[in-house]
Amino acid sequence: MKEIELVLFDLSHVNLALEQYESEQIHGIIGADILLATNAVIDYETQSMFLKLQ
């Protein structure tokens, strides 16, 4: 199985700023490199995302 290296960032400061605009919180950001490497499929109707390592 192929391995992908991930980096996690604390987004609490972003969410504090978003609260001032009564916006939804951000739980995470997935970069295009991960989406491409996993041939990601995003199903907006079911609000699902599928990632598959080759």
Rank of each mutant, 00 (worst) to 15 (best):
G28N: 07
H27M: 11
E22H: 14
L51V: 11
I34H: 09
D10E: 08
L6A: 05
N39V: 00
L35Q: 09
Q54D: 05
D10M: 03
K2C: 03
T46F: 02
T38E: 00
A37G: 12
A17Y: 07
L53T: 13
V41E: 13
N15K: 09
F50D: 10
L6K: 01
Q20N: 10
A37H: 12
E24F: 01
H13W: 09
I26N: 04
L18H: 12
D10R: 08
L16S: 10
I29F: 14
E45L: 06
L6H: 04
I26A: 13
I30Q: 07
I29W: 05
S48R: 14
F50S: 10
V41F: 12
V7E: 07
T46A: 04
A32C: 05
V7L: 11
K52S: 09
L18N: 06
M1A: 10
A37I: 03
A37R: 10
L8V: 10
L51F: 13
A40W: 03
D43I: 02
E24N: 15
V41H: 09
H27A: 10
M1V: 13
Y21D: 14
I34A: 14
G28L: 03
E5K: 08
E3A: 06
V14H: 06
L51K: 03
Q25L: 07
L53A: 08
S23L: 15
G28E: 05
H27N: 12
V41N: 07
D33P: 00
I26E: 02
F50V: 13
M49H: 02
L36T: 09
S23A: 14
V14D: 00
Q20I: 04
K52G: 01
F50I: 06
F50G: 00
I4R: 08
M49C: 09
I26P: 00
S23M: 15
G31K: 02
I4H: 10
L16E: 15
L11K: 05
